[in-house]
Write a protein that binds this DNA or RNA. Structure first.
Length: 112
DNA sequence: TGCGTGACCCAGG
DNA sequence: ACCTGGGCCACGC
């Protein structure tokens, strides 16, 4: 599989996350047709320069923000999520379910 | 050519 | 909630 194609598909999957909703790195990878390649997703986001890309909607599978708590990037992600109406408590999006639940579904503002 | 290093994930303990 | 160990793999040195 051509790496460039993978890159495009992953970025497309990220762009496909609706405002106000979030998805896990692994989830994004699966939607891009690359199961098990969450790290690749993380790598792409880390190197991304496109300001239109909604990178802040991508979280770890447990609902926590991937950056070290309190870091500038962490803060920015929290702010961006809240600006879209996503509830964030202690760097974590509300998650009621087993570990990895984020990877099983997508949360929207209406859900508990 | 190896080896360490990540915006990761998962099953277990 | 935290730690371990195994998977994953592009990159840099």
């Amino acid at each position: 599989m051509d790496p460039k194609s993978n890159c495009r598909r992953i970025l497309a999957a990220v762009r496909a996350i609706p405002a106000g909703q979030v998805a896990g790195y692994g989830e994004v990878a699966r939607r891009a047709g690359l199961p098990g390649r969450a790290r690749l997703v993380a790598r792409l986001l880390a190197g991304n320069e496109d300001p239109r890309l909604p990178w802040h909607r991508v979280l770890r599978s447990d609902g926590r923000i991937a950056f070290p708590a309190g870091s500038p990037s962490w803060q920015e992600q929290v702010d961006r999520l809240r600006a879209e109406g996503v509830e964030v408590r202690n760097g974590r999006v509300r998650v009621a379910g087993p570990r990895g639940a984020l990877d099983a579904e997508l949360w929207g503002p209406g859900r508990r």
